[in-house]
């Protein structure tokens, strides 16, 4: 019986790879749009907060180096989230494009998994592009090879958290409410994720420190700070990774449930 089952699995993986190839193909053909979508926001944040405010003397010299890991975290989380959320709302809501993939010979879970994997890939590309851009704008970026494993772990978990949020939002939000996604979800996530300030320094603003502790992105920012600028006070890396792992489990399980609800009546 191993023969037919192995063959069946090969068919399913082939379908999975074909769908991934479709997504990569479309991204490749729309590369400038993709880059504009993922880079512009962190680029401006980096330029204004890291360069302009510093040059005008409103921030201290090391602020740019403190900001940079936070912006990497922001890019990792938001890119993954956007890659999933908006297309999903549209595909389930009005273009119905996803139907052809749901009818491909693979488990429904594979369709969701492909979306997550694709979101991770886009998130990695967007984050890595930020490195040369950082050098270009700031002159130098904080970098420690000894922090590299933590850097990678933070990025991967950050992208997964973003993908989890995206899956959740993409299957939860009704198409006519897509505007609310921006104002009620993206903006708060963007500003409470500790990308522009280190979390321990919020001691003086206790209530806000509590609020930011509830945003999983905070732990992405803090883990990347731990990896790149450990001299800045930050949350212990093991706490960051643990919280992120738990957040990913919760977001993914609820998101996948939502995906099934939308995929099968």
């Amino acid at each position: 019986m191993a023969g037919p089952i192995a063959l069946e699995q090969a068919t399913q993986w082939r379908a999975f790879r074909a769908v991934l190839r479709r997504d990569l193909y479309v991204t490749w053909r729309e590369l400038p749009a993709f880059l504009a979508q993922v880079i512009l926001q962190p680029l401006f944040l980096l330029f204004v907060f890291g360069k302009v405010l510093g040059s005008l003397g409103y921030t201290r010299n090391n602020y740019a180096h403190l900001l940079f890991p936070g912006l990497l975290a922001l890019t990792a989380v938001l890119t993954a989230m956007q890659t999933l959320a908006f297309p999903l709302v549209a595909e389930f809501g009005w273009t119905k494009e996803i139907e052809d993939r749901l009818l491909a010979p693979m488990p429904t879970l594979f369709v969701a998994a492909e979306k997550v994997l694709f979101a991770l890939l886009r998130s990695f590309v967007a984050t890595l592009i930020m490195l040369p851009i950082g050098v270009l704008i700031l002159g130098s970026i904080p970098w420690r090879w000894s922090g590299f494993p933590l850097f990678v772990a933070g990025l991967v978990l950050g992208a997964l958290v973003g993908a989890g949020f995206g899956l959740l939002m993409g299957t939860l939000v009704q198409p006519q409410r897509i505007n609310l996604l921006f104002s009620l979800v993206f903006t708060p996530l963007l500003f409470t994720g500790c990308s522009q300030y280190p979390w321990p320094s919020l001691d003086r603003l206790r209530w806000f420190q509590v609020v930011t502790a509830a945003n999983p992105m905070t732990y992405v920012s803090e883990s990347l700070r731990g990896a790149l600028v450990p001299s800045v006070p930050h949350i212990q890396p093991w706490i960051c990774l643990l919280v992120l792992a738990v957040a990913i489990c919760v977001l993914m399980s609820v998101g996948v449930k939502g995906f099934y609800r939308r995929a099968i009546d």
Partner: peptide, 12 residues
């Protein structure tokens, strides 16, 4: 054309 080709690819 790609709609047709990718659909077939999904189906192996």
């Amino acid at each position: 054309r790609d709609n047709l080709v990718f659909h077939a690819a999904y189906h192996g």
